[in-house]
Amino acid sequence: MEEADIERLKAIAKDIRKDILIMLNKATSGHTGGSLSVVEILVALFFSKMRHDPNNVHYRERDRFVLSKGHAAPALYAVLSRCGYFDRKELFELRKLGSHLQGHPDSKFTPGVEVPTGSLGQGLSMANGIALALRLDKIPSRVYVLLGDGEVQEGQVWEAAMTAAHYKIDNLCAILDNNGLQIDGWVKDVMNIEPLGKKWEAFGWEVLEIDGHDFNQILDALDKAEKIKGRPTIIIAHTIKGKGVSFFENQVKYHGIAPNDIELEKALKELDSN
């Protein structure tokens, strides 16, 4: 990856972060921390890795993306809007009555959203189904699914993990946003999920571990995953909850709280100064 491309992605990520904060502030509710932790992953996918076309949303050969951790919807919406799926103005109607942007992603309302998510633990099963259908139809597209770390406490995730390995679903790549926090506290304190990599390996997956805020590492891992055949791949992305705004980082409080006006102003200033 050229340095200029990385700089372009970094600039986009900064704008996305600003949009996320403004839309959450205007909505007065929503998930700040877990939206900020996935920004680089989403930007790498939608602005570099994935084949998709906002002007032809449902074209068959597109790569598919499933946001299994649906509460990061603001990040997805900001990215989709910037790609051109809908007007940026719509971002600021998030969560309002009549908005195209529901509190959690909903394919019935929002172009670019493949399936509705929000109830945790269900996205990997759906992504498996999409990947199996693509394989049956001999469509060479890939399926990306983004999981939360707290989310893998759901039993269905491990049912789906078995399925992906059993059916050798290699046109699918899961990415795990390992930001370490969930709504009640540190994941390790609430319900320990470690050893995470060994668990996925034991379930038959190829496991890659990266810094989830480093574009070079993300894109390398996504390329590597595409070459792995005969089994699914998971990229465990080590991230920081609330990434990019110092006073949101690693703060459990901001899992499900939107920035107020003062916090927003401070946060935007901080983002602009970096």
Binding site: V115, S125, M126, G129, I130, L132, Q156, M162, T163
Partner: peptide, 12 residues
Amino acid sequence: QDMIGTAAGLAA
């Protein structure tokens, strides 16, 4: 649970 989710993905 996984069966239903997978079916949903296939339908999608």
